[in-house]
């Protein structure tokens, strides 16, 4: 499923800044040639001990948060590597909304291609959610571009292109191929490469 419109759920609080994609999915799991099956390896080094048993003090292993589909986190989530495997792992684990004050560019872009909505809120709004989302549900409405929790609601920005892709679950490549004539025309004017 590559579309998203609305969710009402409690959040998993991952209270760490600058979470990089090497943590989200370590390199030893990048050797598969498919897009599925990464969920069990999500945050592998933070979730498991050397002998493969679960580290109980990590939030993703905390039973209270089991099954939740919103990940609440801090600034610059998804920094580092371009590996889309990070997004595939979150998706496969069941996460479909990420809320943070900021995201790394490549990661942010990769989310939309896989039906995950990354929501950017102000730091104080994220702080409010950290204080309340443990027990309270968060409503994320993409159409209204709004996040609500308790008696508060926060609006968020998202560009129209990404919003439309997610709301309608569109095939981006299919859409671009409809512009075949524009691409062909550009190519016919282009020299050896278009820097000339």
């Amino acid at each position: 499923m590559k579309y998203f419109k609305f969710i009402c759920d409690k959040a998993i609080p991952l209270d760490i800044i600058n979470v990089d994609t090497d943590q989200i999915i370590p390199k030893q799991f990048l050797k598969m040639v498919k897009k599925e099956g990464y969920g069990e390896f999500l945050f592998y080094n933070w979730r498991y001990q050397d002998d493969g048993t679960l580290l109980t003090d990590f939030v993703l292993n905390d039973k209270r948060y089991s099954g939740r589909r919103i990940l609440l986190t801090r600034d610059n989530f998804g920094s580092g590597s371009s590996r889309e495997h990070a997004v595939w792992a979150l998706k496969d684990f069941g996460i479909i909304v990420l809320i943070a004050p900021s995201f790394a560019d490549i990661f942010y872009n990769n989310c939309f291609k896989n039906g995950i909505l990354p929501v950017k809120l102000k730091s104080q709004e994220v702080e409010f959610l950290f204080k309340n989302s443990e027990n309270e549900e968060i409503v994320v409405d993409l159409d209204k571009q709004e996040v609500a929790c308790c008696d508060q609601s926060f609006s968020f920005l998202i560009n129209g292109f990404n919003k439309r892709m997610l709301m309608q679950g569109l095939d981006e490549i299919g859409l671009t191929l409809e512009l075949e004539s524009a691409i062909g025309e550009y190519e016919s004017k282009r020299g050896i490469h278009s820097s000339t």
Partner: peptide, 18 residues
């Protein structure tokens, strides 16, 4: 610039990126 695998597929098919 670095891109994700979905964009790699998009460039394969269209030689372009949004």
């Amino acid at each position: 610039l670095g891109i994700g695998t979905s964009d790699v597929e998009h460039v394969f098919a269209t030689q372009c990126l949004w």
